[in-house]
């Protein structure tokens, strides 16, 4: 995962899908742990603010920091050491989420694009009007 290369302060990170499942993690052994952490923090944040959509949770402690960012159906959770540059870490995580969203968009567009209908000959032998001709 390129996340840990992006920011030297990130010790572990995981990308979660819309259902909260681990899509990618670095190191891989921490994926489930980070997914549970993100779910617990997001649930607590929902309770605290009495709002459904949580876009960011940030907790900085003496022993390290935890960041959870959600955007476009994906969530990224990261753990850092003590006293991180919070702004930079959040920027890196957001950049990661946006690049993933951009990669997913063309795939979704390709999936949703209707397939062209084949030209079929009518009973008279003339080719039937296709969608292209109509345009």
């Amino acid at each position: 995962m390129e996340l840990r290369k992006l920011s030297s302060q990130i010790e572990a990170a995981a990308l979660l899908d819309a259902g909260g499942g681990v899509a990618a993690a670095s190191p891989e052994t921490e994926g489930d742990r980070l997914a549970r952490l993100a779910a617990e923090l997001t649930a607590a944040a929902r309770d605290i603010g009495a709002q459904d959509e949580v876009t960011r949770v940030e907790v900085e402690l003496a022993e390290g920091a935890v960041f959870v960012l959600a955007e476009g159906g994906s969530t990224v959770v990261a753990r850092t050491g003590p006293e991180p540059s919070a702004g930079l870490v959040v920027y890196d995580l957001r950049t990661c989420l946006r690049s993933i969203a951009e990669q997913q968009q063309p795939e979704e567009e390709a999936k949703s694009k209707p397939k062209r209908s084949r030209r079929t000959k009518s009973a008279s032998g003339e080719p039937a009007a296709s969608e292209e001709a109509a345009e």
Binding site: I48, Q51, E53, T55, V57, E58, V59
Partner: peptide
């Protein structure tokens, strides 16, 4: 700190129950 979808955000004061709840999980 927490940010929400409507653009609002909260900064939790250390020692407050909400802060301790998040800190405990983290």
């Amino acid at each position: 700190g927490i940010s929400y979808g409507d653009g609002s955000s909260i900064v939790l004061e250390p020692g407050s129950p909400s802060f301790e709840r998040l800190a405990g999980i983290a």
